[in-house]
């Protein structure tokens, strides 16, 4: 009994102080965000972001692993060094740049509102008065709707993942939701919800809050990896790999 115990303790300690295996780049992602990142029934991560990261890794000759992590802990844990990079539909914003370094943008985002087909309001400041709006916690959309002009006008509800956002819209606990345009498009198309719900208003582009695009986040000062990733990204854009992946996931969207 004693030996088993000591053995187990030693094992645990070893696990704690185990040195990082070299050259394996650990990517983290919050994988409940199809088609950008999601978990397949096999348990493996998949999606646009994951394929882009894989392509970059192949070009840069890096061995990469992917893990599913809660959205809110992505930046704090990246800063601590729990993983090397985050690719998770993360907008490059000034605020986040204070915490982490970003690669060049690999996707231009926009946000879209989705509401019930019979809803009798438009997603303007006046139209949203008194409405309950669902967004994912810690996203740029939470920031966007947290602007002073929305304060006391809307009731903002935040969720740890996008599924919570849509489940509550379906359940009628919220009136309207705001999320990345491709995400809501994918949701409406694949879950047969387009008969009840619809995208309303023009897609929102607001570089100041929504950022200039999705970027791969790295711990500050990791310039070596940053250069490799940027180079890899440039290469897959040049040789058409990027375009191919893009067409696979967003066949109806024109790439500009």
């Amino acid at each position: 009994m004693k030996k088993i115990l000591i053995g187990c303790l030693a094992l645990l300690l070893c696990a704690t102080i185990q040195a990082q295996p070299q050259k394996v780049i650990k990517f983290a992602s919050e994988a409940t965000y199809p088609p950008f990142e999601f978990v397949q029934p096999s348990g493996e991560l998949a999606g646009f972001d994951i394929d882009i990261a894989r392509a970059i890794c192949a070009k840069a000759e890096l061995t990469c692993t992917f893990s599913n992590q809660p959205w809110e802990s992505l930046i704090p844990a990246l800063r601590l060094g729990k993983f090397d990079a985050v690719i998770s539909s993360m907008d490059i914003t000034d605020e986040r740049k204070k915490q982490v370094d970003f690669s060049e943008s690999y996707f231009s985002p926009s946000g879209s509102f989705v509401t019930h087909k019979d809803a009798k309001f438009s997603p303007t400041l006046a139209g949203l008065k008194g409405k309950t709006v669902g967004v994912q916690k810690g996203t740029t959309f939470e920031k966007y709707l947290g602007q002073p002009q929305y304060k006391d006008v809307i009731k903002l509800k935040t969720y740890t993942n996008f599924q919570g956002v849509t489940m509550d819209l379906k359940a009628g606990r919220s009136d309207i939701i705001l999320a990345d345009t491709p995400i809501v498009e994918d949701w409406l198309k694949n879950s047969d919800e387009s008969k009840n719900f619809i995208m309303v208003g023009d897609p929102i582009h607001d570089p100041k809050i929504l950022g200039v695009g999705f970027g791969i986040a790295l711990k500050k000062g990791n310039t070596e990896l940053l250069e490799k990733i940027n180079q890899g990204l440039a290469e897959i854009k040049k040789d058409g790999t990027y375009q191919k992946i893009f067409q696979q996931y967003f066949p109806h969207t024109k790439l500009d």
Partner: peptide, 22 residues
Amino acid sequence: NTITILDLMGVTNKIAGETYAV
């Protein structure tokens, strides 16, 4: 706080997410 309620834990998470001073 896991179901959108901003109780003490929820508020703490929110502030930690904004300030990154976890």
